[in-house]
Simulated scan of single mutants.
Amino acid sequence: MTTPLDVSGQAMEAQPEAVLQGTGGKAIEGRSLGQIAWTRLKRDKAAVAGAVVVVFLVLVAIFAERPFGGLIALFGDSPNIPNNDLIDPMTSAPTAPLGGISLEHPFGLEPVNGRDIFARILSGAQISLLVAFLATLVSVVIGALLGVLAGYFGGWIDTVISRLMDVFLAFPLLLFAIAIVGALPDQALGMKGNALRIAVIVFIIGFFSWPYIARIVRGQTLSLREREFVDAARSLGATNRYIIFREVFPNLVAPILVYSTLLIPTNIMFEASLSFLGVGVNEPQASWGGMLTRAVDYYQIAPHFMIVPGLAIFITVMAFNLLGDGLRDALDPRAR
């Protein structure tokens, strides 16, 4: 296309009004980093599907029981009420076909006692997600704080924190958790029963998992502290506290958020492992790992009892992993 000429034969310069008319009269607006990340995330169908499942599971866990809701009472029996009249005393299996699956019991009944599996899955979601979220919060807070201190100050502070990371990473966490939780008394620290066991499990997972995120934060901080905006803030007289919390931490939100979504499914699996080994929450409180433990003895007569909680764990872990992968790609400044 040639440049338009005026009557004198010289090139004409396009006026701003003409440019706006050519674009429909709309001014071109820039996009923030958050808008760019949101656009990328919406294009990732797998991440969106994972996010939908995660939100659904969180809402189910919140509104499963009173005082926030009552989905269990609305769609099924109480998770702890037995239905012995629906169990064959000879085989311990549900008398109804397909494991007792019906409109009243959509996931069937447990063998031996006949408790509603659907209600116990909803109740178990509360335990699994509560432990996973709280443990992740503890590890993120500790790991982010120690990681940024090690990366920003360096020197002996970095040496001490790094060696502390190595000690915690070498610690046999599963064996330690089994020993501590298994030896818990019925009452301690003003708590008792499952409340005490959940608190101890959250503390163990969170306190011993912080080195993983601390290493990521330390590496990012080592790079950020050499950036121009940090030098500019330091030249203007900003204190270390101001630089850490106002300049460095905002640039660490993306990696911390991404790693948190990938750490939550790990904590869900760890809690399920403890419950499967018999050192999680006690009966009659439902948990997905505890349901799998009981299903091992009855999988031949009631295979659905093992399939349902196994699928619940699989879908939850897969959803968080898909969401984490999508967030990592969306928040990557080098991605297109």
Score class of each variant (00 low, 15 high):
residue 128 S to K: 09
residue 150 A to I: 06
residue 136 T to S: 14
residue 78 S to N: 15
residue 170 A to M: 04
residue 158 D to F: 12
residue 105 H to P: 04
residue 181 V to W: 12
residue 183 A to P: 00
residue 197 R to W: 10
residue 141 V to H: 01
residue 171 F to M: 10
residue 107 F to N: 01
residue 93 A to D: 03
residue 158 D to N: 14
residue 85 D to F: 11
residue 172 P to I: 08
residue 77 D to C: 13
residue 102 S to P: 09
residue 125 A to C: 10
residue 124 G to Q: 05
residue 80 N to F: 12
residue 102 S to H: 09
residue 162 S to K: 12
residue 192 K to S: 15
residue 175 L to V: 06
residue 193 G to M: 01
residue 186 D to F: 05
residue 119 A to V: 00
residue 183 A to H: 01
residue 122 L to E: 06
residue 203 F to Y: 04
residue 94 P to M: 14
residue 141 V to D: 02
residue 101 I to H: 06
residue 193 G to V: 01
residue 132 A to P: 07
residue 70 G to Q: 00
residue 169 L to Y: 00
residue 151 G to T: 12
residue 98 L to Q: 12
residue 80 N to Q: 14
residue 196 L to D: 04
residue 199 A to P: 07
residue 88 D to N: 15
residue 181 V to D: 05
residue 108 G to N: 07
residue 169 L to S: 00
residue 97 P to F: 10
residue 98 L to P: 00
residue 104 E to D: 06
residue 87 I to S: 09
residue 154 G to K: 04
residue 132 A to F: 08
residue 154 G to Y: 09
residue 198 I to A: 04
residue 162 S to M: 14
residue 174 L to Q: 02
residue 201 I to L: 12
residue 134 L to T: 10
residue 124 G to W: 08
residue 201 I to K: 02
residue 100 G to D: 07
residue 116 D to N: 03
residue 185 P to M: 03
residue 192 K to Q: 15
residue 147 G to A: 10
residue 115 R to D: 03
residue 211 P to K: 02
residue 178 I to S: 06
residue 122 L to V: 02
residue 129 L to I: 11
residue 136 T to W: 00
residue 167 V to A: 11
residue 77 D to R: 15
residue 95 T to S: 14
residue 212 Y to M: 01
residue 185 P to K: 03
residue 93 A to P: 03
residue 115 R to E: 06
residue 109 L to D: 09
residue 150 A to Y: 11
residue 133 F to R: 06
residue 114 G to N: 05
residue 115 R to N: 05
residue 148 V to N: 12
residue 108 G to T: 05
residue 68 F to A: 11
residue 104 E to H: 04
residue 123 S to L: 05
residue 207 F to W: 04
residue 166 D to N: 11
residue 97 P to T: 05
residue 89 P to H: 02
